[in-house]
């Protein structure tokens, strides 16, 4: 289980994270929302172990992340960064296969190849397997890299894997936005993975999240079921927008509608 304890990050005198405590639950899709500059990516980087935190610590299970080597971390969590290199000469298949690298260290087994294939099937990019990655559209590339991240944490050790997704739907059309988050939630449920995703579209996020966390100014403002967070006045407050919450008769879920900005 991946958790942050009293996390504090400062860069150049600015507090990016402040006394932040958060534990990801295995089998859940947790969506991180908040305005630009709230510290979402910083939190994700701290959780992934990329960022040295001045205060507090991140733990994988009961081990502090700074005691783990790059390889140990790679076997426990996958990270999908916001931006990927778009001019890769590699075949899509080979990019996905790289996700298994921390497990086979250069000698892939049949099981590794099978996992890469299954991950591609899950993100709907099996048909792209033999295409050169750099020739794919932005959305197709995003799915290839998502498959790579899924392949990396496909086999769960005791205590579970974590999957950290930084804006996984930013480059996708509306259908793939829905499919991707559905896929992330399914993956969490079936494999007991703790999934954390940064998503900007609040209604989309609420539709698939098991848990929604609102971050503002480096602090955790709201944390709970999506319906509750969506109805919370803190949400509209965080974005500085006047919002109305409608109840969607079809799904029985709340829908957030922003009023025109002044």
């Amino acid at each position: 289980m991946l958790s942050a304890h009293h996390l504090g990050v400062r860069v150049g005198g600015r507090r990016l994270l402040d006394e932040l405590t958060l534990a990801l639950e295995p089998g859940q899709l947790c969506v991180l929302v908040g305005p630009n500059g709230a510290g979402k990516t910083t939190l994700l980087r701290a959780l992934s172990g990329d960022l040295d935190t001045a205060d507090g610590e991140v733990r994988y299970g009961d081990r502090p992340v700074r005691d783990l080597g790059a390889l140990e971390r790679a076997r426990l969590r996958a990270v999908l960064a916001q931006h990927q290199r778009s001019d890769l000469d590699h075949l899509a298949r080979d990019v996905v296969a790289l996700g298994r690298y921390p497990h086979h260290l250069g000698r892939p087994t049949a099981a590794d190849r099978a996992i890469a294939n299954e991950a591609m099937a899950l993100t709907g990019c099996s048909a792209l397997a033999h295409r050169v990655c750099g020739t794919l559209s932005g959305g197709e590339q995003a799915r290839v890299h998502l498959a790579r991240a899924l392949a990396q944490v496909w086999t769960a050790p005791p205590g579970g894997h974590a999957l950290l997704l930084d804006e996984p739907v930013a480059a996708l059309d509306i259908a793939w936005q829905h499919r991707t988050l559905a896929c992330a939630r399914e993956f969490a449920r079936q494999r007991g993975t703790s999934v954390l995703a940064i998503v900007h579209d609040l209604n989309l996020a609420a539709r698939y999240a098991d848990r929604m966390v609102l971050l503002t100014g480096g602090r955790l403002r709201e944390d709970g079921p999506p319906d509750q967070v969506l109805r919370s006045p803190a949400l509209a407050d965080a974005f500085g927008l006047r919002c109305r919450v409608l109840d969607d008769d079809g799904s029985g879920r709340p829908l957030l509608v922003a009023e025109a900005a002044d």
């Binding site: 790059a70 390889l71 990270v79 690298y101």
Partner: peptide, 8 residues
């Protein structure tokens, strides 16, 4: 990304 895949 390479670091995330366990490469030092």
């Amino acid at each position: 990304q390479a670091g995330h895949l366990g490469v030092d």
